[in-house]
């Protein structure tokens, strides 16, 4: 058993609008001098620390928790899960 850090990134599905990202892009970033930026997406990140057998099982355990507790709503959101050694 070991400790792992697992990062859960929750964002809207790619085809779904992200009004917050769009406002930050158009009304803040592009109004300045940073014209090379073409897109901003917002996301929410949860950082777990979890004790599991392996990095893989840490990831799958966290995914299970996210699904079971509706940490994201699969109707509109997708999650990306990354695991790191603690």
């Amino acid at each position: 058993m070991g400790d792992y850090r697992v990062h859960v990134t929750i964002e809207n599905k790619p085809g779904i609008s992200d009004p917050e990202g769009k406002t930050i892009l158009n009304d803040l970033v592009l109004k300045g001098t940073h014209q090379s930026v073409s897109k901003i997406n917002t996301a929410k990140m949860l950082k777990f620390t979890i004790t599991e057998n392996s990095k893989e099982s840490a990831k799958s355990k966290v995914k299970e928790i996210c699904d079971e507790l509706r940490i994201y709503n699969s109707m509109v959101s997708v999650v990306t899960i990354d695991a790191f050694d603690a």
Binding site: P19, E20, T23, I24
Partner: peptide, 8 residues
Amino acid sequence: GFSYGDRL
């Protein structure tokens, strides 16, 4: 109010 929808 909510200038710029309170975004960011």
